[in-house]
Design a protein around this nucleic acid. Structure first.
Length: 102
DNA sequence: CTTTTGACGTGAC
DNA sequence: TGTCACGCCAAAA
């Protein structure tokens, strides 16, 4: 799988995340592990930073529920609008976590 | 070509 | 949970 295809795969998956639900960078990486052979959360984060505009990027947060640095305001506003379970400035991962098979 | 830099994760304390 | 060190890997310097 070429890097370009991997980027596509990541973006496609992110587009499938339902409103009100979220996935962590690591979860995205894991979900594509079989098909890509890669499991780097950091790589997913890097991809979102570079090619994330165009997909619901606010539905992807880090494992601690923290919002993307530099975009906390925007992300918080969108998440609140979607009814995503928030705990302060963080997403309640435990209840908002989403997996492709759902 | 080598080094540094991140939208990250996990295990140790 | 919070901090720290370390692993990770592509992109930028």
């Amino acid at each position: 799988m070429t890097p370009e295809e991997y980027v596509e795969a990541v973006l496609d998956l992110v587009e499938r995340i339902p409103p009100g639900r979220v996935m962590s960078y690591g979860a995205v990486a894991d979900a594509l592990a079989e098909r890509s052979g890669r499991t780097s959360a950091r790589l997913v984060g890097s991809i979102m930073a570079r090619h994330g505009g165009g997909v619901p990027w606010h539905r992807v947060v880090n494992a601690a529920g923290r919002l993307p640095p530099g975009h906390e305001r925007e992300a918080r506003a969108r998440l609140r609008a979607e009814g995503t379970p928030l705990r302060g400035d963080r997403v309640d991962i435990a209840t908002a976590a989403w997996r492709p098979e759902d």
